[in-house]
């Protein structure tokens, strides 16, 4: 369990992290969201012991990071932002070096190296210097390095940045496949990633915690949550749609010709809407229920303070 209380970090006059408090239980896969410069990386750097907080405390299973840094670092796997590594080493040499530092010995080390290399599919580049690898491979080497000792806590700063869609999918599967009693903290810009992998979302903006709940709760924040969007093949009289029971509002996109109906809170309007469409024989090409638009929620959460 990670327990963070009143954490803050100042760089000269600039407050990067401002009075952050949260708890993370085993089994939590936390998605750290926030605009660039929000303090995500700074928070992660403090969690891993790289940066010393200006104020506040960080505890792992009741032990403070301050006094047990080395012990705690042994149980953390960390992928820093940009996946830095020793470029002149070969992939295998590098992973072997990390395994050595992580106190893996003999057969166990061989076993773990083999497993990790297979998991992130590095077989084809094992003997190439890291500096000659593509961005995607570098990222995967960084990931392999982070999980080699099977850590209890995994902290990944933008693990899918620079990966192609297949590799992203693979990394997400990898994270999901980690056993259930671990803590995983991922920072990302990609909102879909959060709903795909995480069971908890934390949004940070200007160093403050703005949202802390499940991805579903984040979707529910959207006014598009359970809204119905349909596309008409040609213009028709749609004024009646707004009158359907449970529909709070209607919006028409004149460019795409899409009509969106917003439900009153907690209402499911798909049934009544389809009934109405059939009854009036409206020329509907497509019709679907929205899951909530995360980018819109993200925008409203991260900018509301700035506006105020």
């Amino acid at each position: 369990m990670i327990c963070v209380k009143n954490l803050s970090k100042m760089f000269d006059q600039f407050t990067a992290v401002d009075d952050l408090s949260f708890e993370i239980q085993s089994g939590d896969i936390v998605g750290f969201l926030g605009p660039n410069g929000a303090g995500k990386s700074t928070t992660m750097k403090m969690l891993t012991g790289f940066l010393t907080p200006t104020g506040g405390t960080i505890e792992f299973d009741g032990q403070s990071l301050d006094s047990n840094q080395k012990m705690i670092q042994k149980s953390i796997g960390y992928l820093p932002e940009g996946a830095p590594a020793y470029g002149d080493m070969t992939v295998f040499g590098y992973l072997n070096f990390i395994a050595e530092v992580r106190e893996l010995k003999g057969d166990v080390r061989r076993e773990r190296l083999k497993e990790v290399i297979e998991k992130v599919e590095l077989q084809s580049v094992l003997n190439r210097p890291i500096e000659n690898l593509s961005k995607g491979f570098k990222r995967r080497v960084g990931l392999a390095q982070a999980i080699i000792h099977d850590p209890k806590i995994l902290i990944l700063d933008e693990p899918t940045d620079g990966l192609d869609p297949n590799q992203k999918h693979q990394v997400r599967r990898l994270i999901q496949a980690l056993s259930r009693d671990k803590i995983v903290i991922i920072s990302t810009h990609i909102l879909e990633e959060v709903t795909a992998v995480c069971n908890r979302v934390m949004i940070i903006a200007s160093g403050k915690l703005k949202f802390d709940d499940t991805p579903q709760a984040l979707q529910q924040r959207s006014r598009y949550y359970h809204a119905v969007t349909m596309k008409l093949s040609y213009a028709a009289d749609i004024s009646g749609l707004a009158e359907i029971e449970g529909v709070a509002d209607m919006e028409v996109d004149r460019v795409s010709g899409e009509v969106t109906l917003f439900p009153e809170s907690g209402q499911f309007i798909l049934g009544p809407v389809t009934d109405y469409v059939q009854h009036r024989k409206l020329p509907v090409d497509s019709l679907f229920v929205e899951q909530g638009r995360l980018d819109e929620v993200f925008r409203s959460i991260t900018t509301e303070e700035a506006a105020a």
């Binding site: 830095p84 470029g87 990390i98």
Partner: peptide, 14 residues
């Protein structure tokens, strides 16, 4: 410059 210091300092090495 390469940022690998972040890696080095977060490994259990003083």
């Amino acid at each position: 410059r390469s940022g690998s210091i972040e890696l080095l300092m977060t490994l259990p090495i003083s």
